[in-house]
Design a protein around this nucleic acid. Structure first.
Lengths: 97, 97
DNA sequence: ATTGTCTTGACAAATATTGCCAAATATAAT
DNA sequence: ATTATATTTGGCAATATTTGTCAAGACAAT
């Protein structure tokens, strides 16, 4: 279970004294979803990130990067060959660019 | 669309003069699926890899690594922050180990 | 033109994800 | 301890995605 993204969101939210339900309503989702997102047992949809960034006055790209990292982490976590696969993909995308 | 895994499979299969339908039947899927897998527009299920490795007399871990790399590639491809996210995950899994 | 192999697209079945709700659990104030 | 407020958790239905099957098409070789 990934946590980088959720921890970051929670920090941004609490620093602004914003309640779960306030963030949730602005993002148009149920409070429980934000709770789960912040604790890492639920992922937001990619398309929700820009609005989330706006609400939290955060950098969109940073959030997108954290979000993506969480997805990747979920995919490789527990896999013995995780690191090798990650490196191989790094190389691959450099080539294709 | 990822291709590392598929290319590798096709090479292993053809070098043994094995037909798509032979591989498919042993793996208990339709021929069309293997065709698509080899061309990279379909992913096998993770659980199918060990049997596939056995059929092709290939190294399970190598295939699993390639398979995982393909999944990751599909996830990050086209994302501007792909590389940063990949690196961040690499660091993260080293910590947790 | 026939046969054998591979490819492609459409569809249904199986799985997984998402949002919603209600109940449970904290947290804080009085 | 009671109340009020905030957060967490789990179950379920709706939705979306993935997987497998089938049938038709492309391509070679003969």
């Amino acid at each position: 279970m990934a946590i980088l993204f959720g921890e970051h969101i929670r920090e941004l939210r609490t620093k602004q004294s914003m309640l779960l339900r306030q963030l949730a309503s602005q993002l148009d989702v149920d409070t429980s979803i934000i709770s789960k997102v912040e604790r890492g047992d639920r992922q937001l949809k990619k398309e929700q990130i820009p609005l989330l960034a706006q609400i939290l006055k955060a950098d969109v790209e940073e959030l997108q990067t954290l979000w993506l990292a969480d997805q990747l982490y979920n995919m490789v976590q527990g896999e013995p060959m995780a690191d090798e696969a990650l490196k191989s993909v790094s190389k691959q995308i450099k080539k294709t660019k």
